[in-house]
Design a protein around this nucleic acid. Structure first.
Ligand SMILES: [Mn+2]
Ligand SMILES: [Mn+2]
Ligand SMILES: [Mn+2]
Ligand SMILES: [Mn+2]
Lengths: 218, 218
DNA sequence: AATATTTTTTAGATAAGTCTAAAATATTTT
DNA sequence: AAAATATTTTAGACTTATCTAAAAAATATT
């Protein structure tokens, strides 16, 4: 039985590993967890004792097989709860994260598997992120930043890089949603802002926004 | 923001208060919480500092207005989650308690009020216990032990005194359920065992079982 | 290669929650 | 009312998770 804190560290290490496959640095974990490097060192030593990470002084850490399984199960719970909140309790996608941060630590295999079934085994969460199944498997989809598309190219919005409430609400306001088919009409050479078309609507987004929208190119 | 531990103590004190209205003793809390009296003293001092209980050395404790409100809100969450697990996720009533013990500490007013609405504002949980509403109000029903009924008297099973898994499963086996109309056919003078009728079925229960069944007399 | 800077670890402190053992107080029995 | 017993509190220790400040190691700069 792991503490909430241990589970949160494992999840953070997992997410950092996805970005840069080499050893996860103490500082990168500290930044993600909004804590001090010394606290991270303490925790990495503890997780190493429990064989959940492979850790060598000054070399950073990597999740072990066991640690990785736990991280994925926490992520599974987080995303299933987010899906429940949106689908069943009518939360909007910018309201679910903090509650899911708490719910992801509830310990009950029966609970999470029943929830999974109740939701009809969803594979994608409200933010477009894949939901691992009971065995930890999930879909890996090819995706590129919208900012890499050329003029007249198309893409389906799969997920987003920035999941802050502010960005989610920006997308709501602009009526940009997961699953939308986005057509790049033109790119302004001066500031790389993009004129695009969703359905019949035309709108303009900045390069920064385009960097945070991940699409499947068509 | 209270810790899980503080919330659990408040809930325990509340439940003990319901049984004996006078000051709640340190030992009674220790017994309920399965902890040591010294730990209880520490916590009572802390809760008194936070004005959640009224506490005088060697005199035991009482919940303050504020403490009582929090205790009731934790109970509300516990019972709504139990109802959710049974109604929506097909848990049986002997499987919900431990999970609800965890879920009752999730902090989100929007979550619990949405859950309440999703369940159509239930007033009774799977064990027959009343569910406080958003304002902390709940139905108080007149109820007596089945063992106090005389021969040929009737009662509706409202709730139970013993909520252990074993007793719940005993009731399932005997097909005795909350809401059943129970007819006391005869009482054996020797051991006070009771012959009763539910629907068309006749069955016998011991006095001990009858002590743990609370009915509304008809 | 030596120096400066950054990163990481260690040492020591603090807070929450628990425990055991001993002391203080209250209650019951004689 | 004194003695015996039970209850409650205090004192001191331990664990987990965090922090600050200092030391050690790694990396970057000159
Ligand atoms: Mn999230
Ligand atoms: Mn998500
Ligand atoms: Mn319960
Ligand atoms: Mn219940």
């Amino acid at each position: 039985m792991l503490s909430f804190s241990e589970e949160n560290y494992l999840k953070a290490i997992y997410h950092i590993e996805q970005l840069q496959a080499d050893g996860v640095s103490t500082n990168s974990v500290a930044k993600k967890m909004q804590t001090k490097a010394s606290s991270v060192t303490d925790m990495l030593q503890k997780l190493a004792d429990k064989q959940l990470v492979i850790y060598k002084k000054y070399q950073g850490a990597l999740l072990s097989e066991k640690g990785s399984k736990i991280a994925i199960s926490v992520i599974r719970k987080h995303r299933l709860w987010e899906t429940f909140l949106v689908e069943k309790l009518n939360f909007s996608w910018d309201e679910v994260h903090d509650v899911a941060e708490q719910l992801e630590h509830i310990q009950s295999e029966k609970l999470i598997d029943s929830l999974d079934a109740y939701l009809k085994f969803p594979t994608i969460d409200p933010h477009g992120d894949p939901i691992p199944d009971k065995d930890g498997n999930f879909v890996q989809r090819q995706k590129v930043k919208l900012s890499t598309l050329k003029e007249n190219e198309l893409g389906i919005l799969l997920t987003i890089n920035d999941s802050t409430d502010e960005f989610l609400r920006y997308l709501d306001n602009k009526k940009i949603a997961i699953g939308d088919k986005i057509n790049v009409l033109s790119i302004e050479p001066f500031d790389k802002s993009i004129q695009l078309k969703i359905g019949k609507r035309e709108l303009m987004i900045t390069e920064e926004v385009a960097e945070n929208l991940l699409v499947s190119p068509l």
